[in-house]
Design a protein around this nucleic acid. Sequence first.
DNA 1: CCGGATACATTATTTTCTTATGTATATTCG
DNA 2: CGAATATACATAAGAAAATAATGTATCCGG
Lengths: 113, 113
Amino acid sequence: MTYSSELLKGTLKTIVLKLLSDNKKMYGYEITMRVRELTQDRIQITEGALYPTLHALEADGLVRTEIEHIGKRMRKYYSLSPAGKTTTREKVNELAAFMQTMAQLLDLQPKLR
Amino acid sequence: MTYSSELLKGTLKTIVLKLLSDNKKMYGYEITMRVRELTQDRIQITEGALYPTLHALEADGLVRTEIEHIGKRMRKYYSLSPAGKTTTREKVNELAAFMQTMAQLLDLQPKLR
DNA sequence: CCGGATACATTATTTTCTTATGTATATTCG
DNA sequence: CGAATATACATAAGAAAATAATGTATCCGG
């Protein structure tokens, strides 16, 4: 990562959920590429972090999967369950509030509006 | 913590350094109290996290210590070394940039100005 | 036909916390 | 005045969540 990567800890689930809420369905590789794109390569999600996270979200019932076959290669699409939609809103709000608090603590005069 | 605490991961060192840069010298207990105060109890640093962090900062040469005796009780004051001051600026800037990127990614229309 | 991209996945290790515990002194309040 | 709370340091076991490395396999462009 461009950022000393420990900052990303704890935010990955929220990022994934948010992307899914904006895109109906996405597959793992697509998510890593989209994040790089959206952050101008500043945040790069590694596969070792992403796949376990996706599996955990599925185990928690927050996402559903469907497998698609593109030629001989497979793609596992993830989409939000109803519970996942609720959780996404909560997580995004929580992260926004946290960032606001951090910005204030670090004297960064934030305005999330 | 009020926030699901995994969000705090990776930010503790930066918080401590920033406080020391604003206050010349502080001791551990004081830091925990100050953070609670500044964040209206929303961020609560535990001693189990703080003391190892302070020791690590010292081992890295970023802070200096001096012990003071208040009656029979001791206080270990921490203050930034020259290297610590540089690192503080870097870490705070990095965290600010990270938050900006996150806000953008999560569609929060930030303005850190 | 070969290297880079696409696409899934797991494992060992590391980092960074939490929770629990320990020790001790000082203060407040009924 | 004594008990609870606050002050003040510290460490240790365990958990969480990444990283880095590795593995397998297909697809595509030059």
